[in-house]
Amino acid sequence: MNTAGFHHVAVICSDYEKSKHFYVNILGFEVIQETYRAARNSYKLDLRVGEQDAIELFSFPDPPARVSRPEACGLRHLAFQVSDIEATVAYLQSQGVQSEPIRLDELTGKRFTFFSDPDNLPLEIYEH
């Protein structure tokens, strides 16, 4: 397999408008395209993250709950690279988004912390 990188990460939300506000207005991701699929009664929102990465935000009627804390089996978390972790944490807090205390990655010497999206999906900010 000759992989060039990630094409996108898909996230299913329980409250489309709340999650759209979070990812677009709080995290600042650019809307590429928004599609309403009447046959599925669902939205698909394509978001640009950074220069080339993307998140697909999906809404479905009554999606089942999923265990999502970082130590559960399956997808552990999504990590976003930032240049200034303290400024990012301060910004998130100003928007009402709480994060865990900043920690140091003992393997890389880089700082990181976790916060959650509206559906409690664990998200990480990692300082580069």
Rank of each mutant, 00 (worst) to 15 (best):
M1K: 06
T3A: 09
G5Q: 03
F6Q: 05
V9A: 15
D15G: 05
Y16I: 11
E17A: 14
K20N: 04
K20F: 04
K20Y: 05
Y23E: 04
N25E: 14
N25I: 01
N25H: 15
I26V: 10
I26T: 08
G28P: 06
F29W: 09
F29D: 01
E34R: 12
T35E: 14
A38D: 10
A39F: 04
R40C: 00
R40T: 01
Y43M: 01
K44Y: 00
V49Q: 01
E51V: 09
Q52A: 11
Q52N: 14
F58L: 15
P63F: 09
P64G: 08
A65M: 12
A65T: 12
R66M: 13
V67T: 11
R69T: 11
G74N: 02
G74L: 08
R76K: 05
R76P: 00
H77K: 01
L78P: 00
A79F: 06
F80T: 05
V82T: 11
V82N: 09
S83C: 06
T88S: 11
V89I: 07
L92S: 08
S94P: 01
Q95H: 02
G96M: 07
Q98C: 03
P101T: 03
I102M: 09
D105S: 14
G109A: 10
F112C: 02
F112N: 01
F114E: 02
F115N: 06
S116K: 02
P118D: 06
D119F: 03
P122M: 09
L123W: 11
I125E: 10
Y126H: 15
